[in-house]
Design a protein around this nucleic acid. Structure first.
Length: 270
DNA sequence: AAAGACACCTGGGAGC
DNA sequence: TGCTCCCAGGTGTCTT
């Protein structure tokens, strides 16, 4: 489910409900996520105030007075605000209960997500390899062209590499490449600086636009208020294999790159 | 250092 | 209706 816009949407959705609140209880029902869920959360966080919720790449950070929690939603995870007494479903793994009676509930059917202490060595290792935030000036043309010069892998694989830029997953990689008229299979080192500049802009625009729309709802992603994300209506190529290009009516082609599905328009993207 | 294959896990849909 | 197979929004790790 979650790429950067979905994580950002989640952050914005949950933050107003729980920021500034003291934690009263933590319930861990299924601690075997990608890595074992942080131990002793209750002891370290009890009565500790949640200062703020922030995001780095696709990680959510719950910054408490005492310690910070780092969460990842994996491929199927979500967080939402609920209240006590609501039905607990099979994959509702963790509840953070706050003094205002609101509950932050972490759900993840495939359990690819994680919930670690920020200062856990595993978490630190995850964070240190991360490249620049796509919407910041750290992700810029000079640095991007330098990186691409050294890479002969397909451009789609390169922009999905966390060391190059964070937060660009399978959906938004495909969409950005369409908007930049670049074929996903093109070796990164064969693309001119001008076209890389177009791609850089497309990535920023697509992500910013998706955040404005509340993310992309494919199956079960929803904003914290339960509404779906509306970016799906703007998808030009992702999931449209075999359908006509919305720009030129050529049939959208579907291929595989590195075990992932890729869709592109063979006429618009060269 | 870079690239590719494989791993983790569950659920949904297609095809038989 | 039920079985098997394939696919899915991510990304760390191991091997070349």
């Amino acid at each position: 489910m979650p790429e950067l816009p979905e994580v950002e949407t989640s952050k914005r959705g949950i933050s107003p409900h729980i920021s500034g609140q003291k934690l009263t209880n933590v319930v861990v029902r299924h601690p075997t996520l990608r890595w074992p869920v942080a131990k002793d959360m209750q002891r370290h966080l009890f009565s500790s105030k949640l200062l703020k919720v922030t995001r780095r790449a696709k990680y959510l950070l719950l910054e408490f007075e005492t310690k910070t929690i780092l969460m990842h939603l994996g491929m199927s995870g979500s967080v939402r605000i609920t209240s006590s007494g609501t039905l607990i479903n099979k994959h509702d793994h963790i509840d953070f209960e706050f003094a205002n009676k609101k509950i932050l509930r972490f759900t993840d059917p495939r359990r690819f997500g994680c919930c670690l202490w920020f200062d856990d060595p595993i978490a630190q290792k995850l964070l240190t390899t991360l490249g620049p935030e796509p919407l910041s000036d750290d992700f810029n043309l000079e640095q991007f062209t330098e990186t691409c010069k050294k890479r002969k892998a397909a451009i789609k694989q390169v922009i999905m590499d966390n060391k190059v830029v964070v937060g660009v997953g399978n959906i938004y990689a495909a969409e950005s490449l369409f908007r930049a008229s670049i074929r996903p299979t093109t070796p990164a080192n064969k693309i001119s600086k001008e076209r890389l500049n177009g791609l850089l802009s497309s990535i920023k625009q697509v992500l910013a636009n998706a955040i404005e729309q509340g993310g992309t709802t494919l199956k079960d992603f929803s904003q914290s208020d339960g509404k779906p994300g509306y970016f799906k209506q703007e998808l030009m190529v992702y999931g449209r294999e075999g359908e006509p290009c919305l720009n030129c009516h050529t049939t959208i082609k579907g291929i595989r790159q590195g075990q992932r599905a890729t869709a592109y328009c063979p006429k618009c993207q060269r």
